[in-house]
């Protein structure tokens, strides 16, 4: 049901349309790379870093930093959209496809599920349908713009799921837990949308 928009008296577009690419509703383009996190930035030494995929039966497969680095890499160039309204076009990343890790987990006898919970340093979590992190849609990214990913941007490695709002791309990611049933993560328990599709403007609970 389309509503009559409320027109803000005297408001006009001021930004020149520098980019021809389309923005999701309610977003604006930034050339910076803003930082938003709920707490202090962790600094885990690479020697102590690992990445784990777990299933509900308690089986797990683990990669050290060097093991992760030895896997085939991809270099996606993607647009990213933060729920706080900024979007950034054409960001260049390097990382390992989640497909690669999930395939190795399956080879090791893990049972996957319909959903995953991304697990990050400091207890941060975010939930996603498994279909949103497989099929070439998600990476464990460790480089940005040709350089190692800076800690404030989630380094040494973050989940990268660019087709969803960026809080789903968990910074400082350390693992994925397969789940048969969905379970809300950190922001999803605090009023943010369960899926977070920017093109449908799924910012908060109750949005379409």
């Amino acid at each position: 049901m389309p509503e009559q928009p409320f027109i803000a008296r005297g408001f006009h577009r001021r930004r020149s349309g520098g980019s021809e690419r389309q923005l999701p509703p309610g977003q604006y383009e930034t050339r910076d790379f803003p930082v938003l996190s709920a707490g202090p930035t962790p600094h885990t030494p690479l020697a102590d870093w690992d990445f784990t995929i777990l299933d509900e039966a308690g089986k797990s497969v683990r990669w050290s930093w060097d093991e992760l680095q030895s896997l085939p890499r991809e270099t996606p160039t993607v647009d990213i959209h933060c729920v706080t309204k900024w979007s950034k076009f054409g960001t260049r990343w390097e990382g390992v496809s989640v497909d690669t890790l999930v395939a190795m987990a399956r080879e090791n006898g893990l049972d996957d599920g319909e959903f995953v919970l991304a697990l990050a340093e400091g207890g941060y979590t975010t939930n996603l349908p498994a279909a949103d992190v497989t099929g070439g849609k998600a990476w464990i990214a460790f480089a940005f713009d040709g350089k190692p990913l800076a800690p404030e941007h989630g380094g040494p490695a973050r989940l990268l799921v660019p087709h969803l709002y960026f809080w789903k791309s968990a910074k400082w990611v350390r693992g994925l837990r397969f789940m048969q049933h969905d379970r809300p993560g950190f922001w999803e328990q605090l009023g943010y949308h369960n899926r977070g599709d920017p093109w449908r403007e799924q910012r908060y609970q109750g949005d379409p």
């Binding site: 938003l36 707490g39 706080t84």
Partner: peptide, 29 residues
Amino acid sequence: TPFTESVATLLVELGHAPAMVRTERFGPT
């Protein structure tokens, strides 16, 4: 962001538990 990054990191170095330090970083708005 640079302010919040710096202060939160110093607080953790001073012994505050990361879970006790809540941050809000201002991007360009």
